[in-house]
């Protein structure tokens, strides 16, 4: 099971999705497309996202679990959906702020 810490990178084993952990630590069953995510740099297993976990990921979006203990940032998009175990992560909706810089 992947061990998470902020800044660690994971890659999907079934699509092109890559993420960086923003929040969360310890052993977490982080999945993409229903299959366990791999440490960045590991070779993909191939295969396709499982049914029910094929909504896809969007570049630059953050995804969180229900109680917001885990948050990941998508750095490469793909066809799989992110999840912890069987529970899919939610897209973190942030109200757009006006540009202040």
């Amino acid at each position: 099971m992947p061990s998470l810490k902020p800044g660690s990178r994971f890659t999907s084993s079934v699509c092109t999705t890559q993420v960086i952990v923003v929040k969360g630590a310890g052993e977490v069953d982080l999945r993409c497309g229903g299959a366990p995510m791999l440490a960045a740099g590991a070779a993909a297993d191939g295969g396709l996202p499982a049914e029910g976990a094929s909504g896809g990921t969007l570049m630059g979006k953050r995804y969180v679990d229900q109680d917001e203990t885990v948050e990941v940032l998508c750095t490469k998009p793909g066809d799989g959906s992110l999840g912890i175990g069987d529970a899919l992560l939610d897209l973190k909706e942030a109200k757009p702020l006006p540009a202040s810089d």
């Binding site: 902020p6 923003v22 570049m59 630059g60 979006k61 953050r62 940032l73 942030a94 757009p96 702020l97 540009a99 202040s100 810089d101």
Partner: peptide, 23 residues
Amino acid sequence: HRHLVSYVLGSVEFMGAHEDEAA
């Protein structure tokens, strides 16, 4: 790094600007 990255992730949408925008 964590302070500044938190600020940017929390306040700026990735690719939130249209291609014709300039600051």
